[in-house]
Simulated assay, not measured.
Amino acid sequence: MKSQWLSLLTICGAAATALADKRPYSVLMTEATMARKVAKVRWYTEQVFYRGVQYVYNATGDAKYAAYIRGQLDPILTENGTFTNWDGVASYEGLDNLRVGETMLFLWEHTGQQRYLNTADFLRREIDRQNRTDEGGLWHMDKTPDQQWLDGLWMVGAFYAHWTALFEPGNGTAWDDIAHEFDLIEEHCRDPGTGLLFHGYDESRRAVWADPVTGASPMLWDRADGWYFNALLDVLDWFPRSHPGFGRLRGYFVTLAEALRRAWDGEGGGWWLVMGPDYVGRKGNYIESSGTALFVTGFLKGMRKGYIPKHEYQEFAFGAYDAMTRKFVNETCGTINWEGTVKVGHLNGNGTFEAGLTGSLQAYIKEPIAQNWLLGVGPFIYASSEIEAMRG
């Protein structure tokens, strides 16, 4: 037994030395997560992490990171770029199923291989096949009829804009459509009291949680606002500045940045899972890590792109990053872990599933918290990559 403990201490000591080598957090978290064996699937959870790997590849130029992404996705693609396990589920899973499109564009741009472009083209056609509200908003999925969620614009917005910029830059109809998706969210989900956005809305007002006037859900869920905050930035990367939608989207981002700065809990070190002022500090509510990391990423990238002024936001954003790191990064026994990420948060389409909880505070706080959940790990890598570039 004594020899086993000595062996463990020796292993942990050697690994701790590796952590002390001053590699940046973006690299440390990426390497640790790669070592934990991420599933080789197309689901959005994994794509959130692969985006972080792309950040590290872009920063380091190390080809092993791009090769890792290829190694994760090649096994589920045929030689001509179709998914081996697609089976027509895209319409059922809806927009979540399309986040992989951005990864495919990265692989095509990195390798020039036609099969990745074939996959991206297929996913672009899937956007046109999705159901829409009467106003033209993309349903989040078939089982949530007439509903738009903030999450969906993260899942599809950047890919839609990126693909259009590459292959149909003059397609005004597509640019109008992309901007319209955000316009609808702003119309139905912006909370006039806080400036934050409710998780989603139901155009039909049939969902048990839908506000009878706006159709909006009642809770301000942090990760949904985080997805939206970053979706705006990612779409603006590709959106033509000459289009009137560019100014609107930038304005939506600036307004949300101002609201999020007000909502930060400096003592808690981040943002609450459910951010409404009536719910902050309520039993079961807590400072959550994935939304916090997404918000910090948005502030840092927003400054880098010039959408919000550094003299107003840099001190705040740097402080929020450092507080987040102290709270959620756990370095133990030779590895680095990310704590405090809620696994999921959702709105139900027709109120038949857990109808008593749907859309309520309890619906969000009852979900489990996971260590090293990719939906938190990925955003922490984004934020780390941004701040490492800014701090030099």
Results as ranks from 00 to 15, higher is better:
T103G: 07
M104N: 02
M104A: 07
M104L: 13
L105Q: 06
L105F: 00
F106H: 01
F106E: 02
L107R: 03
W108L: 02
W108R: 00
H110Q: 06
T111L: 05
G112Q: 03
Q114G: 08
Q114D: 14
Y116G: 01
Y116K: 00
Y116T: 01
Y116N: 00
Y116Q: 01
Y116A: 02
L117V: 09
N118K: 01
N118D: 10
N118C: 05
N118M: 04
T119R: 02
A120V: 10
A120L: 08
A120N: 02
D121F: 14
D121N: 08
F122A: 07
L123Q: 04
L123Y: 15
L123R: 05
R124V: 00
R124M: 03
R124Y: 15
R124S: 08
I127C: 05
I127Q: 02
D128E: 08
R129Y: 15
Q130G: 07
N131T: 10
R132E: 04
T133P: 00
T133K: 11
D134A: 15
D134I: 08
E135K: 11
E135P: 00
E135N: 02
G136P: 03
G136E: 09
G137K: 09
G137P: 08
G137W: 04
G137Q: 09
K143W: 14
T144C: 10
T144W: 13
P145A: 08
D146H: 13
D146T: 06
D146A: 11
D146N: 09
Q147K: 10
W149K: 00
L150D: 11
D151P: 03
G152E: 02
L153N: 14
L153E: 12
L153C: 12
W154Q: 07
W154Y: 15
M155E: 06
M155W: 09
M155F: 08
M155K: 06
V156T: 13
G157F: 05
G157M: 12
F159L: 06
F159T: 01
A161M: 03
A161Y: 07
H162D: 02
H162F: 10
H162P: 00
W163V: 00
W163D: 02
A165F: 11
A165E: 09
A165R: 04
L166K: 03
L166C: 03
F167C: 01
F167I: 01
F167M: 00
E168F: 09
P169Q: 05
P169L: 10
P169N: 04
N171Q: 06
N171R: 07
G172T: 08
G172E: 09
T173D: 12
A174P: 00
A174M: 03
D176A: 03
D176N: 11
D177H: 14
D177T: 12
D177K: 14
I178D: 00
I178T: 02
I178A: 07
A179D: 09
H180K: 14
E181W: 15
E181I: 11
E181K: 13
F182H: 05
F182L: 03
F182T: 01
D183I: 15
D183H: 14
L184P: 07
L184F: 14
L184E: 13
L184A: 13
I185C: 13
E187F: 15
H188E: 14
H188N: 12
H188K: 13
H188Q: 13
C189I: 13
C189M: 14
R190S: 12
D191H: 11
D191V: 11
G193Y: 14
G193K: 09
T194L: 11
T194E: 03
G195T: 03
L196W: 11
L196N: 06
L197A: 10
L197D: 10
F198L: 05
